[in-house]
């Protein structure tokens, strides 16, 4: 269940990044564009991605990090598989979204901006997500959960993602086993 923290050197996404970087060769001020592309591919920008871009472009790791740590659009750490956004807009706040946020943090044992130990969830405090009539709301990925008045609902919501994930893992293990058998046969 653990989320791999390091990206393998032979990850195919590096090849895609290289193809993109090749097109930029010789141009100036490419740090920002390179980092944006990398984030699009990897979801976040760990050290190994910085090192890869640095080796390819000749821009020092420290200079790239200067850019990536300056702009809030860049994520330096992996997000959970599911991003929980708790709306802290005025309407939701009045309706008790702070309690919702606190409860989620307690349930997952993490703070805002961190990833749960199973790698499944990360929490962000969002500004108004535009459905004040449903306050207080949270979003998990693209799914909106409205009127969270009973905090006990939260546990159930999280559980529904956990069980989906468990099922997916079982399937993939099963298919891996099949693959193993297929290789054995070959």
């Amino acid at each position: 269940m653990c989320q791999p923290k390091q990206i393998a050197v032979d990850d195919p996404r590096f090849l895609e990044l290289d193809t993109f970087l090749k097109k930029l060769q010789g141009e100036k001020g490419i740090a920002m564009i390179a980092l944006q592309k990398a984030q699009q591919l990897f979801g976040y920008l760990p050290l190994e991605v910085h090192k890869h871009i640095s080796a390819f472009t000749g821009i020092s790791v420290a200079e790239l990090y200067g850019v990536s740590s300056f702009y809030s659009q860049f994520l330096l750490e992996a997000e959970g598989k599911h991003r929980i956004s708790v709306c802290m807009g005025t309407a939701c706040y009045v309706k008790g979204s702070q309690k919702v946020l606190d409860k989620l943090c307690e349930l997952l044992n993490i703070k805002v901006g961190e990833v749960s130990s199973d790698g499944l969830f990360s929490i962000t405090a969002a500004r108004c997500i535009g459905c004040c009539g449903l306050a207080p709301v949270i979003m998990i990925d693209e799914e909106v959960y409205a009127n969270i008045v009973d905090l006990n609902e939260l546990e159930q919501i999280l559980d529904s993602y956990r069980s989906k994930e468990a099922a997916a893992v079982t399937v993939s293990v099963a298919s891996a086993d099949n693959k193993g058998e297929a290789e054995d046969l070959a």
């Binding site: 910085h50 020092s60 420290a62 200067g66």
Partner: peptide, 19 residues
């Protein structure tokens, strides 16, 4: 070379290597 660079911003700005 570029070992040292400004990182983060505002009050948290520091000069040093990355990460």
């Amino acid at each position: 070379i570029g070992v040292l660079e400004f990182s983060k911003r505002g009050f948290e700005t520091t000069v040093g290597p990355a990460f």
